[in-house]
Structures are given as structure tokens and as C-alpha cells.
């Protein structure tokens, strides 16, 4: 069953079309990812879905409730972790959660138990009486996820949950997010602009300039881009080439003394390949498709790093700074 339905959604700000006629559906209990560069319209879409913004035209519904007309029912059914932190840093972790529990009208006798449960789940129970301003970026993110779960929402929105985190906390957070649908019985709608993070999603929509330009499972999308590229150098390229081609039934090419082939799961191909050609291997490297490759493939242009204006960079830095403090 689809828990989120979006049909021909359009949002204009003056003459900017932030969301340009998008449609999609999300299955209950899955992780759906919105992948796209800065300014693609991801946050705008989330704001419409969570009733904070009225669309210019089009339809959106969550759990059968219209996001515009039945905003109160929609709000009860969703939890959100916004792109920028929305915690009160002058309150403790537990106080932030209690505040939320009251806002969502949770029965007083269940409140403490629910708060303790989610705190344990995000591994912050020991720190529950610390002021949030003492927390690291990763801890704040986890606390926000915990807060979003207290009222047992049907859908949890995560807007760029890993932005501004160090690589280690990022990995931890993703492992944690991957467990959510099963453990908490929620559907996840998340956004990111990192291809590798979209790996945990069941389905991904790639969005650029307000338009969805591709949608599918991570594997499908990778196939569309051509998958991973494995580069290999051997002592005898000619014979190795033949044996690898026979092994995978794939074409192997050669460039500057190096063999290369495109396959869906590069990391599992490599061990098999090495077993086959054995002693002859000199070096192996794996190149994963990036958002850049997907973009290049789908739009004919590289992802617009250079178009990020100075103001955006400053905003990002201010956000990252706030998150650390």
C-alpha cells in the first residue's frame, strides 16, 4: 500500500520553480530517498508534505490524508528531522523530548516510558540530563531522530540527516536509519546529495531543478549509469582479458596498459576475478559510480559544484557551525 502519494506537485516562489510537476508514491515500510544537488527542490517538497508550505498546484497525501486540507491529521502521522537543527539547546535532551511529548498530546502515564525508550534506542540515555548545547553534531542528529519517533509516526522525514557530520558519525547514522522501518514500523522519506548514502534506500528518486529525472532501486539506477568500474593490471593482459570475459560474460576493455570492466557489484567481482587470474595480478582498483556519473549520464552535465554560490557556501558553514555548537 502507498502511504505517500504525490501527484503533479508544483511550487513556485516568484519566478523560481522550486518543484516542477513531480509525482511519486511511496510504499509503506520502505526507505525512500530523494537524491539531488543543492537547490534541487528537496526541502521544498518536504515542507509541502509536512504541511508547512502550500503548493502552487498538485496533490499530496499521507496515509490517505490530504496535506493541505487535513493538515492536523497529517501532522499527527509524521515525524520530521529538518535539515537544520530544531532542538532547544538551552534545554536538556530529556526536556526536549518531554516538550515534544506534550505537543503531541501523549498520555502522561506513558510519557516518561516513551522518552526513556527512544533515548535508549539512540544510545543517549546516559546523557539525558545534559544540555543539548554540549552535544556533538551526531548526537544532536540522533536526538532529533529519537524525538521524531516519540509519537510513533507512520512516516519519518529526514532532510539531509548527515549534512555537516564527520565520516564516522555519518556511517553510524546510516546504519541506524537502515534499522528504523523494521524496529519502529515507519516509512522513511529522506533526502541527501551523496550517492553512496542512497545505498540504504529501497527506492530513490533523482531530482534536479525541481524535476524527477530518474526513479528506481539503487541497483537499477547504478545499472543505468553503468555500475562500478573495476580496473586491473596484470603481467599478461591478453590472457587475463579472455579469462575474465569468460567468467563474467562481460566485455573487458583495455586502456593505457590497464584492463577495465563495468559491473553492478564491483566489490564482489574482485575476489572472483583474482581467484581466476591468480598470480598474474599486479594491481586492482574499483571506481564506484557517483552522483556525478548519474548526472552526467542523465542530464549530460556534471553536477553543478561550480554553481554553488558564495552565499550558499557561507550558509552551509553557518549551519555546520550551529550544528557543532
Amino acid at each position: 500500500m502507498s502511504i505517500i502519494r504525490v501527484e503533479n506537485l508544483i511550487k513556485r516562489f516568484g519566478n523560481i520553480t522550486a518543484v516542477n510537476d513531480i509525482s511519486f508514491e511511496i510504499e509503506e515500510g520502505t526507505i525512500f530517498g530523494f537524491l539531488g544537488p543543492n537547490g534541487a527542490g528537496k526541502t521544498t517538497t518536504i515542507n509541502i508534505l509536512c504541511t508547512l508550505l502550500a503548493p502552487t498546484s498538485g496533490k499530496a497525501s499521507i496515509n490517505g490524508h490530504d496535506c493541505m486540507k487535513e493538515s492536523s491529521k497529517v501532522r499527527k502521522a509524521i515525524g520530521i528531522v529538518f535539515q537544520d537543527t530544531t532542538l532547544d539547546k538551552d534545554l536538556t535532551a530529556a526536556e526536549n523530548l518531554i516538550f515534544h511529548a506534550y505537543l503531541y498530546n501523549i498520555a502522561k502515564d506513558k510519557m516518561q516510558e516513551r522518552v526513556d525508550d527512544v533515548l535508549r534506542f539512540v544510545d543517549l540515555y546516559d546523557r539525558k540530563d545534559d544540555l543539548v548545547k554540549k552535544f556533538s553534531g551526531g548526537m544532536k542528529r540522533r536526538l532529533e531522530v529519537a524525538r521524531g519517533l516519540i509519537h510513533r509516526p507512520r512516516v519519518l522525514f529526514l532532510d539531509e540527516p548527515t549534512l555537516g557530520l564527520d565520516p564516522q558519525s555519518r556511517t553510524n547514522l546510516w546504519e541506524f536509519i537502515a534499522e528504523l522501518p523494521e524496529k519502529h514500523n515507519v516509512t522513511i522519506f529522506m533526502t541527501t546529495h551523496y550517492m553512496e548514502e542512497a545505498e540504504v534506500c529501497d527506492r530513490i528518486a533523482i531530482i534536479d531543478n525541481g524535476k524527477i529525472i530518474a526513479m528506481g532501486t539503487p541497483d537499477e539506477l547504478k545499472k543505468a549509469v553503468g555500475g562500478d568500474v573495476v580496473y586491473i593490471k596484470t603481467t599478461d593482459n591478453a590472457s587475463a582479458k579472455k579469462e575474465i570475459e569468460r567468467l563474467f560474460r562481460l566485455d573487458v576493455s583495455e586502456k593505457e596498459g590497464e584492463l577495465y570492466l563495468t559491473c553492478v557489484m564491483g566489490d564482489t567481482c574482485i575476489p572472483e576475478m583474482i581467484r581466476t587470474i591468480g598470480e598474474r595480478v599486479l594491481s586492482v582498483r574499483l571506481q564506484r559510480p557517483t552522483l556525478n556519473d548519474v548526472f552526467l549520464k542523465l542530464t549530460g552535465k556534471a553536477i553543478r559544484e561550480e554553481e554553488t554560490s558564495g552565499m550558499d557556501t557561507i550558509k552551509e558553514e553557518v549551519r555546520a557551525y550551529r550544528r557543532r555548537h
Binding site: L52, L87, L103
Partner: peptide, 12 residues
């Protein structure tokens, strides 16, 4: 500092 959104998005 963002906290207002936490209030605005609640069913209140």
C-alpha cells in the same frame, strides 16, 4: 535557531 519549526509542525 529553528525551534519554532518543531512547534509549527506539531498537531497544535
Amino acid at each position: 535557531f529553528g525551534f519554532l519549526k518543531e512547534i509549527l509542525v506539531a498537531p497544535v
